[in-house]
Design a protein around this nucleic acid. Structure first.
Length: 636
RNA sequence: GGGGUGGUAGCGAAGUUGGUCAUCGCGCUGGCCUGUCACGCCGGAGAUCGCGGGUUCAAGUCCCGUCCACCUCGCCA
């Protein structure tokens, strides 16, 4: 072994060799991918991160090497010295002489005849096959993550992350941004995402929080005059996981001084173009010739798609019927009449409707069976809907299969046809009730149908890159429970100048310079132009019912900093993992993060998190309320 | 916390109304094979059917509970 490591240095990787290398002596290191033993000849596909090379053990070349090869098994780690040769010709079953080249491999024209082999390490049989396409349970893959990571697809996506990181650093550095670091251990601030807490041993009984983002610190960089900043940075949020949400994740974080919203957009568009070019070889100018992404007002997105991250790869817009229903006083439909009454008698306000009515048209061409349409109802019920009122439009325009709408007035029916453009054969799916519920249900129903009807792929992008800026959301949201206004995102977003005067009189009207970047229905970034004017900031706090003292105690250091000649500034954070996921057509964030957590936030490989000893707790001055049931130890 | 899907040999799956069915493919293992690349051929081993209760003469199958993984609502820029 020493000879191979000390004297025979690796000359090539397993993806390197071509027909032009024939005749050369080479040294390769790698893992046994597959082995085909013909008794005399033994073929082995040797694999490393760059590819696969077929190596041949011929007893006539080296009896000793051939003897070793008889023992070799999958995933054993070996090194070989040998000669590259053309695979030449072979006879097929009909006895014809055909090429022995393997077109499936980049190195398929050649093979290496082994004259010397060294066994670095044996391997137990792997618990699952290390194939490119694998349907092994994720539970097992995660337990043996280091083996899963040997597989080519994961090698490719992690490599893609590398390219994204390099492209990002190059581009942003060229744009005059400095890569600066911010602390992970920060002061706990309430609100927003839950923080992971880090107990301090030295300051007994006190806690740091793991940063949920570098937000405040990057603003302080602007105050400090660094002018343009970026960082590829880990962030931590103790919230429930989804396929696109992990408790620790990576952001491409950017902050710029002396900019408006459009300046931020241009910089980010350039970055995305650079990443797509380098990671995929895709020139987004073919889709966006001007180099700019389209923009959509937040209100339009909510109205037509029910959320702030519409997937515009297909149409199927919603139609909001609230106004029509009020106008027709419910049109003879009992729950709608009740709704209309509440608006009429003033229980509900038109400017912040607590309840709404929406409809989605499933085109006749979808040809949904009654059973399929019933399944849609089950789908929405799982999302909190009471049901899914449906109506099929008959040839004469009447509604069938629609018990709820028996008494529907023709006037409202015609108005709905006109508003939606629906016609005979189409299926109308209604949802009405609390606004948030209706929007969520209808947004998810639209995506569900988009996939079901084959308008968008189940996963991946289908070669469609649909970018969109969602802009101009409201600064405030009305909180039903608190019966007051709360910041829709955070209290430091700059409102539109023309709305500043109604911050206190009519908060619901105030739009702000906040923006989300959406790709194929995923939010891949979000940011804002910050509020740096102390006077406007005071108004915002007043509208939120936040006293000076409260503001000081929560955000004192930022407010203090803004008093020392803070420049106008704004920025954005891009979800690096999500970008990697979409670029790689991966099915979840877990496929682009080397060592991800499970849906319940655990690490199946290390079994973290674990209970800790009473001694450790005591040193940190912590007492736990319940001792968790000790989970049985895993044996990977 | 709610809704849903899944858990049968190392891996992937099949398993009718409860009754010789614990089956198939891959892998593993012993043997043979000098042109394979999903190599081939012959033989073999390997499973308390996630776990715990219950119903029954009899449970992989029915009932209750529970654990784990995944999707999702709530939550979360």
């Amino acid at each position: 072994m020493a000879k191979f490591i000390d004297e025979l240095k690796r000359t090539h990787r397993c993806g390197d060799l071509r027909i032009t290398d024939v005749g050369n002596e080479v040294v390769l290191f790698g893992w046994v991918h597959t082995r085909r033993d013909h008794g005399g000849l033994i073929f082995i596909d040797l694999r490393d991160r760059e590819g696969i090379t077929q190596i041949v053990f011929d007893p006539e070349r080296s009896l000793e090497a051939h003897r070793v090869a008889e023992q070799l098994r999958s995933e054993w780690c070996i090194g070989i010295r040998g000669t590259v040769r053309d695979r030449g010709m072979q006879r097929n079953r009909k006895g014809e002489l055909v090429s022995a080249h393997n077109p499936k491999l980049d190195t398929g024209a050649i093979e290496v005849v082994v004259s010397e082999v060294v066994l670095f390490n044996r391997s137990e049989p792997p618990p699952f096959p290390l194939e490119d396409s694998l349907d092994t349970r994720e539970e097992i893959r995660l337990t043996y993550r280091y083996l899963d990571l040997r597989r080519a697809p994961l090698q490719r996506t992690l490599r893609k992350r590398h390219v994204i990181n390099q492209a990002t650093r190059r581009y942003l550095s060229d744009q005059g941004c400095l890569e600066l670091e911010t602390p992970y251990m920060v002061k706990y601030t309430p609100g927003g995402a839950r923080n992971f807490l880090v107990p301090s041993r030295i300051q007994r009984g006190k806690f740091f929080a793991l940063a949920e983002s570098p937000q405040l610190f990057k603003q302080l960089f602007m105050v400090a005059g660094f002018d343009r900043y970026f960082q590829i940075v880990k962030c931590f949020r103790d919230e429930d996981l989804r396929l696109d949400r992990q408790p620790e994740f990576t952001q491409i974080d950017i902050e710029l001084s002396f900019v408006n919203q459009d300046d931020v957009f241009r910089l980010v568009e350039g970055l995305i173009f650079a990443i797509w070019k380098e990671a995929l070889g895709v020139d987004l100018h073919e889709v966006y010739p001007t180099g700019r992404f389209p923009q959509m007002p937040f209100a339009e997105s909510m109205r037509d798609y029910g959320n702030d991250k519409p997937d515009l790869r297909f149409a199927m817009k919603h139609t909001d019927l609230t106004d029509l229903v009020i106008e027709h006083e419910g049109g003879g439909v009992a729950p709608w009449a009740e709704l209309a009454r509440k608006f009429r008698d003033g229980s509900y306000r038109r400017d912040l409707p607590p309840e709404i009515v929406k409809v989605l048209v499933v085109p006749a061409s979808a040809n949904l069976s009654r059973a399929e349409s019933d399944k849609l109802e089950e789908f929405v019920k799982g999302m909190g809907a009471k049901g899914l009122a449906r109506a099929k439009i008959a040839d004469d325009g009447s509604w069938t299969q629609a018990p709820l709408f028996k008494g529907l007035a023709a006037g409202l029916r015609e108005a709905i046809h006109k508003a939606t453009g629906a016609g005979p054969g189409d299926l109308l799916c209604f949802q009405f009730g609390k606004e948030a519920m209706v929007q969520t249900v209808m947004a998810n129903l639209r995506i569900h149908l988009g996939k079901k009807l084959g308008l968008i792929p189940e996963v991946g992008h289908g070669n469609q890159w649909n970018f969109l800026w969602v802009v101009n959301p409201p600064l405030f949201e009305y909180d039903e429970e608190r019966k007051g206004w709360v910041a829709a995102h955070h209290a430091f977003t700059r409102p539109h100048d023309e709305h500043i005067e109604c911050i206190e009189s009519d908060p619901g009207k105030v739009l702000c310079y906040r923006y989300d970047l959406v790709l194929n229905g995923f939010e891949i970034g979000g940011g804002s132009i910050r509020l740096h004017d102390p006077e406007v900031q005071k108004k915002v706090f007043r509208a939120l019912g936040i006293s000076d003292e409260e503001a000081q105690s929560k955000f004192g250091f930022l407010l203090q900093a803004l008093r020392f000649g803070a420049p106008p500034h704004g920025g954005i954070a891009l979800g690096m993992d999500r970008i990697a996921m979409l670029l790689s057509e991966a099915e979840s964030l877990r496929d682009v993060i080397p060592f991800p957590k499970t849906q319940k936030g655990t690490d199946l490989m290390t079994d973290a998190p674990t209970p800790i000893s009473p001694e450790q707790l005591s040193e940190l001055a912590i007492r736990t309320l319940e001792i968790d049931k000790e989970s049985p130890p895993r044996s990977p």
